[in-house]
């Protein structure tokens, strides 16, 4: 009677799990909108464009992120900085920056490719829209303001937890180059988006001067 005893054994398993779930010990899911799980540190959520502490934009409009993107969802157009009133420390800045969230596969290659750590990913993952056009995040939505706050398209959405925008993944920290030897010991990465709390990166003239000196 192997079949019958196996059958009874199986019934016992489901009954045990049922009692366990009712008492809470076997329950593995959470009622999502009411209760949110803490996401893993390297969670790939929506992107943000960061700034330097002095308010300069980190993006230099190099378009490496757009080039590396396997889903072809990033569109960047750089523009020459006004030398007297620069927007970024580089020669150019990201004049147009768009990410189509419908095409994005959240692989994080843009974050890896970025030479200035301008683009990072946060833990926010709720961005459903009612039309396709809204899913294209423009520069206005991606770029944080000078206080380090990131705008979001749907701040009133009950599901959206804006505090998740303050946590970025640690992927860049693990792979980011430490930079030039002159910056040894200087903190080059922080785990949160926003104005970095380290000194701004030098301008091209400064770098040239240092390498001439050094």
């Amino acid at each position: 009677m192997g079949v019958v005893s196996d059958f009874l054994k199986a019934l016992k398993v489901t009954a045990r799990i049922m009692v366990g779930t009712m008492t809470g010990s076997e329950l593995v899911t959470t009622p999502y909108p009411d209760e949110k799980r803490v996401k893993p540190q390297r969670f790939h959520g929506r992107h943000v464009l960061n700034r330097y502490p002095d308010g300069m934009e980190k993006c230099i409009g190099c378009e490496l992120c757009a080039g590396v993107c396997p889903a072809d969802c990033i569109y960047v157009r750089g523009k020459e900085n006004d030398p007297h009133n620069p927007i970024s420390p580089g020669e150019r800045y990201g004049y147009v920056y768009e990410i189509n969230m419908l095409r994005c596969i959240f692989c994080g290659l843009c974050v890896e490719a970025c030479p200035t750590e301008a683009i990072t990913m946060t833990h926010l993952f709720e961005f459903s829209t009612t039309n396709r056009a809204d899913a294209v995040y423009t520069r206005e939505e991606l770029l944080m303001d000078r206080e380090g706050r990131v705008p979001h398209m749907f701040p009133d959405d009950p599901l959206v937890d804006l505090s998740e925008l303050d946590t970025a993944d640690g992927w860049v920290r693990a792979t980011a180059p430490s930079g030039i030897a002159a910056y040894e010991g200087v903190k080059m990465w922080q785990g949160t988006p926003g104005p970095a709390d380290w000194s701004p990166e030098p301008t091209q003239e400064e770098i040239d001067r240092r390498s001439e000196d050094g």
Binding site: I17, M18, T21, M22, E26, L27, V28, P31
Partner: peptide, 13 residues
């Protein structure tokens, strides 16, 4: 609800 309980889920709530 019962099947959810037997599968460690919450079910309709």
């Amino acid at each position: 609800k019962i099947v959810a309980d037997m599968q460690s889920r919450i079910g309709p709530s």
